[in-house]
Design a binder for these strands. Structure first.
Length: 124
DNA sequence: TTTCTTACA
DNA sequence: TGTAAGGA
């Protein structure tokens, strides 16, 4: 079995944009504010790891749902680094569940929206 | 072609 | 945040 290192720099900024739906401009801002630190390729391209992707999703949740600004997010990350690993994982797991729940809800709404459109098309 | 930095609306 | 210029 070939497990891949979650810290391995893999994705270009364009790929991250496609996967997470977060514009490159924003991803660059995350880095400017010191919230996410992608590594660089030998040609200066940003390379994001799997853990970077997770952090980016968390940042997105914090800024959009919790209304935290990027300096707040940075503060939270600093704080998380000061508590024991078990406590941190518990906290992150909790947020993960909420993010998942919101994701499911979003999917459901999009699905319903698609049905509405289908219905509308059929009656035209 | 894609991404980089810088800068302006 | 979005978009553009100019270079790599």
């Amino acid at each position: 079995m070939v497990e891949i290192d979650p810290e391995m720099p893999l994705y270009s900024i364009g790929v991250v944009e496609d996967i997470l739906g977060i514009p490159q401009r924003i991803l660059r801002t995350y880095e400017e504010k010191g919230v996410i630190r992608p590594s660089r390729s030998d040609t200066n391209r940003r390379l994001y790891s799997q853990t970077d992707l997770s952090k980016i999703q968390y940042v997105h949740y914090l800024t959009h749902i919790k209304k935290v600004n990027l300096s707040g997010v940075k503060e939270i990350f600093d704080l998380l680094g000061k508590i024991p690993a078990e406590a941190r994982e518990a906290l992150l797991a909790e947020s993960e569940r909420e993010i998942q729940a919101l994701s499911d809800e979003k999917k459901k709404i999009l699905h319903e929206g698609a049905e509405e459109i289908d219905k509308e098309i059929l009656t035209k």
